[in-house]
Design a protein around this nucleic acid. Structure first.
Length: 331
DNA sequence: ATGGTTTTTACTGCGTC
DNA sequence: GACGCGGTAAAAACCAT
């Protein structure tokens, strides 16, 4: 919606204007945004500010192009403002923690005319600086948190994770934030890592692949930050129980309950015999499913299992033989 | 960095439909 | 002949040191 766009722009203006009493054209706010309909099909038109085009959302007709870029108009004002802006850099939006919104109190104990302040005033400014700093960092953390929580929400609903997992993961994220683990890492990355850890702690694990699929960051970075977070927060994450993967995989393969039960059985006997240690839980689950499907005559092919579990067929082969052996089922 | 373990990739051969 | 399966060797990934 163009509505949101206006708000962001408005926000930016307010800020830059507010600092240096340069009065800006206030009425800019109610800019005429053509709420027109498409002349071709009557569909709704959307304005793409980045490309300077107005496009019909139904048929894709470009209603208007080469529009005036209203973005950087604030540059034209006065020098002080330009300085202020250029230090902040390009007016990117969401990715900056505080969008440059915060106030800064100068460190020199001088007033606006360059005169030294009285000691009383100096003390006062010192106090203000302290508090301002507190609020500022607090605020940037709040923002950060808000975005991260949104991300966590999005991912966990994509993965169908229960509420408790979301809560644990936001607790983890908060801790990471408190301990200043964020600098140098992306919010998305840490959010993903927190969610992954939480899912495992709550015994509803999702595999690394599944997480990476719904996350906006790539797998490499995800794993790296995950390890980092776990280490730094010394989170206790026990190895996932293979059995907890079974139901999902089974249902994705449309397997009967019987197979699922059998798979669990195989896993638990294998665990008793200790042949599972050191092996990847996902691989074990995949193998158990495959083995169980053989035992119950509800054949699935290795490649099918491999597809839905993202475990290589080789691994499935190796594991399922071990599983059968442990359950002393002759070949 | 290193070495040991596990998983993946790529390829080959066998039997069956 | 395609497909499912099994096996192998080498590469890659992972983990603790």
């Amino acid at each position: 919606m163009s509505d949101a766009k206006i708000r962001t722009y408005g926000g930016e203006r307010q800020r830059t204007g507010g600092e240096q009493s340069v009065e800006e054209t206030e009425d800019e706010e109610d800019e005429v945004v053509s709420e027109d309909v498409c002349p071709e099909c009557g569909g709704r038109v959307d304005t793409d500010e980045e490309r300077g085009e107005t496009v019909c959302s139904e048929c894709g007709l470009v209603v208007e192009e080469d529009e005036i870029d209203r973005g950087p108009e604030w540059r034209a004002f006065d020098a002080a403002e330009k300085d202020e802006k250029s230090r902040v850099g390009a007016p990117t939006t969401n990715m900056m923690h505080d969008k440059g919104l915060s106030t800064n109190i100068g460190w020199q104990d001088k007033d606006a005319y360059g005169r030294a302040l009285s000691s009383r005033q100096r003390q006062k400014m010192q106090r203000l600086r302290t508090w301002n700093e507190r609020f500022r960092t607090r605020n940037s953390k709040e923002r950060n948190l808000k975005q991260a929580l949104g991300e966590i929400e999005r991912m966990s609903s994509a993965l169908g994770l229960p509420q408790e997992v979301r809560e644990t993961s936001s607790v983890i994220y908060r801790r990471a934030l408190e301990e200043d683990l964020l600098p140098g890492r992306s919010i998305e990355g840490v959010a993903t890592a927190a969610l992954y850890a939480a899912a495992r702690q709550m015994t509803t694990p999702r595999s690394l692949d599944e997480m990476a699929n719904v996350s906006r960051i790539d797998e490499m970075e995800f794993k790296r930050t995950y390890r980092y977070i776990v280490r730094e927060l010394s989170l206790e994450v026990q190895p996932a129980d293979p059995a907890s993967y079974v139901p999902r995989f089974a249902s994705e393969l449309d397997l009967a309950e019987e197979v699922e039960r059998r798979a669990r059985q195989l896993l638990s006997t294998a665990q008793e015999k200790g042949v599972t240690s050191g092996k990847s839980p996902v691989g074990l689950a995949a193998a158990a499913i495959y083995a169980a499907s053989l035992l119950t005559n509800r054949r699935v092919t290795q490649s099918e299992v491999s597809d839905v579990t993202n475990v290589s067929e080789v691994t499935i082969r190796n594991r399922y033989q071990e599983l059968l052996e442990a359950a002393d089922v002759p070949a």
